[in-house]
Design a protein around this nucleic acid. Structure first.
Lengths: 294, 294
DNA sequence: ATATTTCTTTGACTGTAGTCAAAGAATCGG
DNA sequence: CCGATTCTTTGACTACAGTCAAAGAAATAT
């Protein structure tokens, strides 16, 4: 990894300071007008029926703390609580009509505040601001994602592979049989490696490397969660897989891809892969690529 | 003012939520490791000797609260307090050597955290991020600045005019005599108007409008604080002055400018002003402009 | 069926942030 | 010089955020 220059760090921290102190505080301020901030946030996160369990993990709250806040909101008539239909240990919170009204009002006020702020800008400046924010967010999300080597048999790896299989099953005209996924033993130990990308602790992408023949590796199942696409994550996964291949003294990596995945093909080309003749008998493949690692 | 589109508001709030929850929280987290967040922020703001008074207004803290926090930091040996040399009601806080060490360590850790985050990006992406953040910050600052009609004899107006005079005195080869500034009565009531731009409650720019002859106004003393330049504030001031002129049924506004202020000339042209022959006997002027208001 | 784990509630806390009012000391305005 | 104002400290609060442990009920694993 290239060292991070001081200017970038300074610029980042300047922005962080400015934004959190001056702008971000707005949000908490209007939210906290009618009720404690914690409760307001809770109200916001409770869409239409969510289990306490999920709320707790999503917001990272203490169970007791959450229980009490929920009770307070219930006493105010903002939410209703009922037992989970499938698991009577768990409970489901949902907004009451009054809660919905309250939330809507909260949103209205927040929007008015933002409208007010943006009103000082010309339409062109507003567009520029929106674009710059989108870029900032995209790159920050990408930066905050970590790619880790994991056991291909782990829960997270399975979850990614299952999502990947369902994904391409829907995109390939001929469908996709999950039995054609790599087996864990093909991508662990000396045979290969499996990487999972995490955002906020949740798996949002994966990629597999397996030894094809001496000095040659194969990259398979590079997948990115729909919510994490267009960030540049596939490239990062590819980079991690290539570094792993280099470390394993593989001088060449190959991969194949389906005709339906044209964006993927464009990406492989952009990442230095060149098309080669068929090297396997993968029934789903229509294009084959190779990259020589330095 | 053009209505603010829903997309811009939504995009803004999405960014706000993401940033404050995910990224901004980082800062508070590392700061709050060794001591309460309030104390850590205080330590950060205490540079080399600052009066309690200024700290209080800058951070918007309660006097009692600040007093107690300062005492706590003093007890920890982080800061020293002494009376203000010019006003013994006031007290000055400054970092002790130990406090400086602590602050440095705090900075080091914060930088390391950011470095870590940015390490996930390629150098090109880091530059893109820095640029996008700079744009975001610039436009947010501009949006948060309010332009208000104020009495030209007020403290804020005087402060701006004095700064303006000092500013151009340094830039004009022949200097500038403050006696040549507009007199308050020339730009108040029916005679004219005076605007001051505020950022975070502090005056950061001004502009004056005065009636030159029936139907014709003159814009003078458009000035922006060095810290608030390159945001597009001069254009906003100009816009406010023009709207005021329109409201006063002036159909034409004129202004003159010094040869040394070439950026100003470019801005006037870009804002629809056209050069006209000399219309006054201002000794500092070398170019004269006019704009017909619709 | 029994032990273990999961999910929630309740009680008993702690620490931080922040407010308000009173009062003492110094300065300022007339 | 005197009254008003400014700056700070102190006392007495409040509320919010959050933690920890115990315990009950239901689900799951063996």
């Amino acid at each position: 990894m290239e060292p991070v220059s001081t200017e970038h760090v300074t610029a980042f921290r300047r922005f962080n300071r400015y934004f959190t102190r001056r702008i971000g505080a707005l949000d908490d301020h209007y939210l906290g007008q009618d009720r404690p901030l914690g409760e307001a946030r809770l109200l916001f996160e409770i869409g239409d029926g969510i289990s306490l369990r999920e709320l707790r993990t999503r917001l990272g709250l203490d169970a007791g703390y959450l229980s009490r806040m929920t009770k307070a909101l219930e006493a105010q008539g903002m939410v209703g609580v009922r037992v989970h239909p499938d698991d009577s240990r768990s409970r489901i919170v949902e907004l009451t009509p009054a809660g919905r009204v309250e939330l809507k009002e909260q949103q209205r006020r927040a929007n008015a505040l933002v409208s007010d702020l943006l009103g000082g800008l010309t339409p062109g400046q507003r567009t520029d601001l929106t674009d710059a924010m989108a870029t900032t967010r995209r790159l920050l999300r990408l930066a905050a994602i970590t790619v880790r080597l994991v056991d291909a048999a782990s829960t997270d790896a399975r979850a990614c592979l299952d999502a990947y299989a369902a994904d391409i099953d829907a995109r390939f005209p001929e469908g996709f049989d999950p039995a054609d996924l790599v087996r864990p033993e093909e991508v662990s130990g000396d045979a290969g490696a499996f990487f999972v990308a995490y955002e906020e602790g949740l798996p949002v992408g994966c990629g597999a490397l397996r030894r094809l023949e001496p000095g040659v590796g194969e990259i398979r199942h590079v997948w990115v969660h729909p919510e994490a696409r267009r960030l540049g994550l596939a490239r990062r996964l590819l980079g991690a897989l290539e570094r792993e291949a280099s470390a394993r003294r593989l001088s060449v990596v190959r991969l194949d891809t389906h005709a339906a995945l044209s964006e993927a093909q464009a990406m492989y080309r952009a990442c230095g892969y060149t098309e080669i003749p068929r090297y396997d008998d993968n029934v789903y493949a229509s294009h084959w690529f190779e990259k020589r690692l330095s």
